[in-house]
Design a protein around this nucleic acid. Sequence first.
DNA 1: GTACAGTTTTAGACTTTGTCAAATTAATGA
DNA 2: TCATTAATTTGACAAAGTCTAAAACTGTAC
Lengths: 140, 140
Amino acid sequence: MQDPETTLRQHDLPVTAQRLAVLRAVAHHPHATADDLAEQVRQEIGAISRQSVYNVLNVLTDKGIIRRIQPAHSPARYEDRVGDNHHHLVCRSCGQTEDVCCAVGAAPCLHAHDQHGFQIDEAEVIYWGTCPACQRKSRS
Amino acid sequence: MQDPETTLRQHDLPVTAQRLAVLRAVAHHPHATADDLAEQVRQEIGAISRQSVYNVLNVLTDKGIIRRIQPAHSPARYEDRVGDNHHHLVCRSCGQTEDVCCAVGAAPCLHAHDQHGFQIDEAEVIYWGTCPACQRKSRS
DNA sequence: GTACAGTTTTAGACTTTGTCAAATTAATGA
DNA sequence: TCATTAATTTGACAAAGTCTAAAACTGTAC
């Protein structure tokens, strides 16, 4: 990921302190929620409105600069690793999220056996399980 | 799927009119939301509280009698087809949901390349796209 | 069939996550 | 620097679901 200011200019987006800070927060805290990111941004630039966090995240997502993932039972999470077709591994009990490479090669998951006439543009894969820390907790 | 009353008794669940009606509604309307199901139940038995619909759906889901799926931008949907490892195909514009068989065979999706120490118990796959009806609409 | 104990159901307030809209403020280009 | 355009803020609002306490019901024992 290159410097945030360059990224914004490349997408014809006015450069603001809020956008820079949100971009940096996403880069430094992959899989963070909007709330987490707001907290990070506040530590960096002092203040930001809740709405601005959502605005910025929505714009960045629309432009494809960041990616939004929305696992069940969790608010949306964001990451700046885009365009590499990776998937996610989510802990059922604490929500910890890890990246995993596409399970079967390049971009294979885009083929369902019976497409029902749908035009498929994405195959989203979420592996659900228990993270090492929560495994230890439940054993004790 | 066998008769709803038998199903409830097999799981040591007291048989109530609400539970029977919700179970039947799920069976007759796969991929319906809690709201849809409440509406169906009301047509069948006259009345049910919103909370009861959620209670019943939660109990049935916990017992593994029905399955909950939660695609992004959509309230939870329910189906009584459980235990066969199938996936879903969701229309981005209208939310229409179809079942698709597991893409790569029996239950292969349960293996991620790097499991990060997680104990994986489910691989959830959602294919996103545009359903035939919405394709026609957007072309016109 | 009745009564009891333990669940379910109900009603209504509440929480979380996110959006809408209008007013204010800031960024860009001449 | 100024004007224009766009972004940010504030506060109200919305959807989906949970929490709690009270009332009603189910299943079982008598």
